[in-house]
Write a protein that binds this DNA or RNA. Structure first.
Length: 836
DNA sequence: AGCACGCCGACT
DNA sequence: GTCGGCGTGCTC
């Protein structure tokens, strides 16, 4: 792993002092140079984690980015305190990637490191104070200090927080400083590794008794103590020592014995007498997972087979290929064959999925084929588990990773293939905090650097990717048939406006939608009702004075959540109990307005009292188990109608869903954003794709106020090409991606005029060099105030031909200008490159 | 970012 | 004089 450069330097270590430039996990622009202690000189390499003192109080985990022998000129380098790893946990390719990301997405390498490494790999330090036992001048102490010292004597040590709580002061620092001066206390750093390996307690029989005559003798002897005999017999039941003595080496989990209802005290007696022995092993957190049934590689249909061949051909010429396969075309089987092929060639494979899709059936399916070669990297996993996956990639245990966005940071060094499934998904873009990276785009960069191939898969590709395929930058493969010859669902529009006029509605449901749902229920088929809005109702209005209850911190209405009778802000998380009366006029006539999933669930229950109705949204799937339970219930057919947000449209395949109803299509279509048509098409096509599997054609009903909208026609006819042509023309006319790159700068301040002034000043500076064509705004965003901060946005469009690096440097300078300016104190600025 | 340091005003 | 508040600048 050591680079030749490092080796060369290391061989002179007798005379030369080494220095290491390290990345610290902080939002500071530079790397920092530390001195390598002599004892580490021979073994130090890039990619090792080290512990360093950073600033006066912090001790942090850093990564070695470079090793050299030039002492810094302007300051004395501090020593590296400790080296944490024997072999690099971060490889050179990753470090280069960190720099690329920092550069491209306009943030610091430290911020990249912070997001890239699971927190279990970032040791934290706590400053602790301890009473100095050789303290002998108590007369110097003030009364208060004596109290603190007395408290400190009671404990081995206390950290700052604990001390502050006891002393009942906000800033404990003064006191600590004074006590250090008087030599009454000692301050030390407690460094603590967050990752803790999973330890299993095991029991085995003393090897002495592996001999049959001794074992028989033992059993005879234990006749007197039946409880102990019981323990031994139980052990032998699991581990037949005589037949398979090698199993005895591995022993048995202690918990297996205790679960078998044996006497605990007898067990400890046996241990004490040396008949049984206890030992500990470090185990993988994933081993329990491994009772998978190895399934044969799926047999591909002829359409899948030819898609596979085409992809392989495409990879001959292109590094990236877009697979456009309609919903239900069976892309997964094609992926599996590709993955197998690449793994056989000895290269690593990364399969990226959006957050929600990962929890579902796909993982089970992949596990069956790839078993323990496959690692899963998911945000719902604990940090310890993520560290194990990271280490598993380093050690080569995991050649294949299925993961979410952040899996692009894993320490691959030999990737052969990256699959980005559902590549159009917006959750691949990170919004907060920095780095605001797009995992699909980063994947393409990684692949390029590791000479790997990328397969982007989607039924509804992003306009950008489709464009790249059109101009032949990407290869292109299509799958136009649904697997098993199932037809695409029949989509029908319902003109809700006309229906309302003709009084053919109940609530905001058209009779037609309700009737169809009813019929479907009678046929014992499942229905999905899609409404992309959680909660009961998006706002509450007073009938007398028209006041709408708003969030105190943001400029949005509060959403009413029925389940716990509270109002919630979906922007800042503010919660307040639902009040019975209007806070403005005292009237009791408060009305819920608009429809969220909760309200639809409630209304449907009234319409269909005997149906089992379930709801799937953020609120019902907070935990891993809740999510899985719900999926199981739907899969087993217990649930008749599933009401849900966009969650129901992603990666879920339910056999018996034959009807999909979209409650309100218009809100999505008219969202004020240049991507709204694309998004609406994607979302409605994906949710429609849930209807009908295995030979039966599904039905989709969409309620809209305006059924003549062109995009709806395109959705009905599954005319992606048509959508693309419309969109790409518009994007070209108005200079949006893929013809430009967009950088969004958001400025925040508690006072709106201040935010506006700063935004205007920044825009002016930007325009000076970039011109009014490229700089738009500043403008108030849709929601003007979030978390008590007023927002202004500037949009920068950079054409592809521009010197991107130069432009970004200029933008960064101007942003810094504003940040440092005395006129705009307290203005927060966020730069988002390629904003969604 | 996080935090010490320094200056300033309030209060015993 | 001591304590806390807030603005400023640095971190190898």
């Amino acid at each position: 792993m050591q680079s030749s450069e490092n080796n060369q330097v290391s061989s002179y270590t007798e005379e030369i002092t080494l220095f290491a430039d390290v990345i610290v996990p902080v939002a500071v622009p530079n790397t920092f140079t530390y001195r390598v202690p002599r004892e580490y000189a021979a073994s130090i390499t890039t990619g090792l984690r080290v512990i360093v003192q950073f600033g006066k109080t912090k001790v942090v985990t850093a990564i070695i980015a470079r090793i050299h022998n030039k002492p810094p000129e302007k300051y004395h380098a501090k020593y590296i305190l400790e080296v944490l790893d024997d072999a690099p946990l971060v490889n050179t390719k990753q470090i280069e990637l960190f720099y690329w990301i920092a550069d491209y997405y306009m943030c610091t390498v430290g911020e990249v490191m912070n997001i890239a490494l699971p927190s279990g790999l970032k040791i934290s330090s706590l400053s602790k104070v301890q009473f100095n036992p050789s303290f002998d001048t108590p007369e110097l102490l003030t009364e208060r200090e004596v109290e603190i010292i007395d408290e400190l004597k009671k404990h081995q040590s206390l950290n700052y927080d604990e001390l502050a709580r006891f002393a009942e002061v906000k800033n404990v620092y003064h006191i600590i400083k004074s006590l250090i001066q008087k030599k009454a206390i000692i301050v030390f750093e407690e460094v603590r590794e967050k990752y803790s390996p999973k330890i299993l307690k095991k029991i085995r029989l003393n090897a002495f008794y592996e001999d049959s005559s001794y074992l028989t003798a033992l059993i005879g002897e234990l006749e007197k103590t039946p409880k102990q005999l019981d323990v031994i017999l139980n052990y032998l039941k699991y581990v037949p020592v005589l037949r398979t003595p090698e199993l005895n080496k591995k022993g048995l989990e202690k918990s297996a014995l205790t679960k078998a209802n044996v006497s605990e005290s007898s067990l400890s007696t046996l241990l004490k007498n040396g008949i049984l022995e206890q030992f500990e092993v470090i185990v993988s957190r994933f081993e329990e997972d491994l009772d998978f049934v190895e399934a044969p590689t799926p047999i591909l249909s002829s359409a899948q087979e030819s898609a596979f061949t085409e992809i392989m051909q495409s990879f001959q010429e292109k590094d990236t290929t877009l697979l456009h396969g309609i919903t239900g075309s069976g892309k997964t089987e094609v992926y599996i064959k590709l993955i197998e092929q690449v793994l056989e060639s000895g290269s690593q494979v990364l399969y990226l999925l959006p957050e929600i899709a990962l929890t579902t059936q796909i993982v089970v399916r992949l596990r069956k084929v790839f078993g323990d070669k496959m690692g899963i990297y998911h945000s719902r996993f604990s940090d310890n588990e993520r560290v194990e996956v990271w280490k598993g990639v380093v050690s080569g245990k995991f050649q294949f990773i299925v993961g979410v966005r952040s899996a692009v940071f894993l320490p691959f060094d030999n990737l052969g293939l990256i699959i980005v499934d559902e590549e159009h998904e917006t959750s691949y873009k990170q919004f907060d905090p920095a780095p605001r990276y797009h995992a699909r785009d980063v994947a393409v960069v990684i692949a390029h650097r590791q000479k790997a191939k990328v397969l982007l898969g989607s039924a509804t590709p992003s306009i950008e990717s489709f464009y790249n395929a059109k101009i032949a930058r990407y290869g292109f493969v299509e799958m136009k048939e649904r697997f098993g010859n199932t037809q695409l669902p029949d989509i029908e529009l319902i003109d809700i406006k006309t229906a309302r006029k003709q009084k053919l509605t109940k609530g905001d449901f058209s009779n037609m939608m309700l009737d169809t749902m009813g019929l479907n229920f009678e046929k014992k088929q499942q229905t999905i009702l899609f409404q992309n809005r959680r909660g009961y109702s998006p706002y509450i209005q007073c009938e007398d004075c028209d006041t709408i209850v708003a969030c105190p911190n943001c400029d949005v209405s509060l959403t009413y959540h029925y389940s716990n009778q509270e109002l919630r802000c979906h922007y800042c998380g503010h919660r307040e109990p639902m009040s019975k009366t209007c806070q403005a006029c005292g009237s009791a006539k408060l009305k819920t307005r608009g429809y969220g999933t909760e309200k639809l669930e409630e209304e449907l229950q009234l319409f269909f009292p005997t149906a089992k109705i379930a709801r799937m949204d953020l609120d019902t799937t907070r935990t891993k188990t809740a999510f899985q339970t719900l999926i199981n219930e739907v899969e087993s057919g217990e649930v008749d109608i599933l009401v849900g947000t966009q969650m129901v449209s992603k990666g879920l395949d339910f056999e018996k869903v034959s009807l999909v109803c979209v409650f309100d299509a218009d809100r999505m279509i008219h969202f004020p954003d240049f991507r709204s048509s694309e998004r609406a098409f994607q979302m409605l096509t994906q949710v429609a794709g849930r209807a009908g599997r295995r030979g039966t054609q599904g039905k989709v009903l969409i309620q809209t106020n305006n059924p003549t909208q062109k995009i709806l026609k395109q959705i009905i006819e599954n005319d992606y090409e048509g959508l693309y042509q419309d969109e790409i023309k518009e994007r070209e006319d108005f200079q949006y991606p893929p013809f430009t790159r967009i950088i969004k700068i958001t400025l925040k301040h508690i006072d709106q005029p201040n935010a506006e002034k700063a935004a205007k000043a920044l825009a002016l500076q930007l325009i000076e060099k970039l011109g009014t064509q490229r700089v738009l705004g500043p403008e108030k965003p849709l929601v003007e105030r979030v978390r008590n901060q007023y927002l202004f946005e500037i949009l920068i469009k950079l054409e592809k031909a521009i010197n991107l690096k130069g432009a970004k440097t200029f933008i960064a300078e101007q942003v810094q200008n504003i940040e440092l300016s005395k006129d705009f104190k307290g203005v927060g600025i966020v730069v988002d490159v390629d904003c969604g």
